[in-house]
Structure formats: structure tokens, C-alpha cells
Simulated assay, not measured.
Amino acid sequence: MNDPDLVDALLQDVPELTSSQEIAALLRVETATVSKWIRAGELSGMKIGKRVTRVRKADLRDFLLGADEMNLSD
């Protein structure tokens, strides 16, 4: 499990609803990687309209806290 204090510090300025692009920039990964995590159910996303997905800050925090226990390399 990742350090909750470090995760909270990382997410301090993140809005309550974040886009895949914002998450990708924060984590220094491709937007396609974030979309893959959402499609696979590893990161909870909510649809807003047909083509817009947002991730709640609390869900991103949970994802990051458990990320070292997941196999994210696929």
C-alpha cells in the first residue's frame, strides 16, 4: 500500500472531478493508459454524456493507494 500522506499531498490541488487528461499529466502516463484503467475497472470513472468521463478525487485516491498491489504493466 502506498503512503496515504504522500497520496494526499499529490492530490492536494486536484479538482473533485478530474479528466483522463488531467490524471495522465499528474501521473506522467498516456491518456490511453488512464482510459484502459477505467475500462478494466481498476479506476472508477463516471460517464458525463456520451464521450466525457470524469473520475472522482476519492476514487483516484483509492486507486493510487492500492496501485502498488495491482499489475498495471499490462
Rank of each mutant, 00 (worst) to 15 (best):
L43Q: 01
D62M: 10
L27G: 01
E16Y: 14
E42D: 14
R56C: 03
T33M: 06
L72R: 01
D59N: 06
R51K: 13
A25Q: 12
R39A: 04
M46C: 09
Q21V: 10
E30G: 07
S73M: 11
V7F: 00
V52G: 00
V34I: 05
I23Q: 02
Q12P: 00
R28M: 09
M70Q: 13
E16A: 14
L27T: 04
L10M: 13
L17M: 12
Q21G: 04
T18I: 11
R39F: 00
D59F: 02
E42L: 15
L60S: 02
A25C: 08
A40T: 05
W37L: 00
T31V: 11
L72Q: 01
G41T: 02
L64A: 01
T18S: 15
S19V: 00
A58R: 06
S44A: 14
Q12I: 04
S73V: 11
Q12Y: 11
L72F: 01
E16C: 08
E69A: 13
A67N: 00
L64E: 05
R61Q: 01
I48P: 00
L64I: 02
N71L: 13
R56K: 12
L17H: 09
S20P: 04
K36M: 09
G49K: 02
M46H: 15
A67V: 07
A9Q: 13
F63V: 04
L11H: 02
P15Y: 12
Q21I: 10
L11C: 01
D8V: 02
M70V: 03
L64K: 02
D3I: 11
D62Q: 13
S35N: 15
V52T: 12
L27R: 12
D59S: 08
A67Q: 07
R51W: 03
I48K: 07
E30M: 05
L65K: 03
D68C: 11
P15T: 09
N71I: 10
S35F: 03
A9W: 07
E16S: 11
E42Q: 15
G41Y: 09
L27N: 06
A58H: 02
D59A: 08
A24K: 07
T53Y: 01
G66K: 08
R54A: 03
E42I: 08
I48E: 03
A58W: 05
N2G: 03
L6Y: 05
K57Q: 08
E16D: 12
E30Q: 15
T31H: 06
R51N: 13
M46V: 14
S35A: 15
D59R: 04
T53K: 10
E69S: 12
A25S: 14
G41E: 04
P15V: 09
L6R: 08
A9T: 12
G66T: 07
D13S: 11
E42G: 08
I23L: 05
M1I: 11
L60W: 03
P4Q: 06
M1N: 10
I48Q: 06
G49V: 03
I48T: 07
W37K: 03
T33E: 09
E16F: 13
T31C: 06
N71W: 05
L64N: 01
S35K: 12
S44M: 11
S44C: 08
V34F: 04
M1V: 10
D62F: 07
D3S: 07
A67K: 07
D74N: 13
N71Q: 14
V14N: 00
D62W: 07
K36Q: 06
W37H: 02
P15N: 09
V34L: 04
R28S: 13
K47N: 10
L27M: 10
K50N: 15
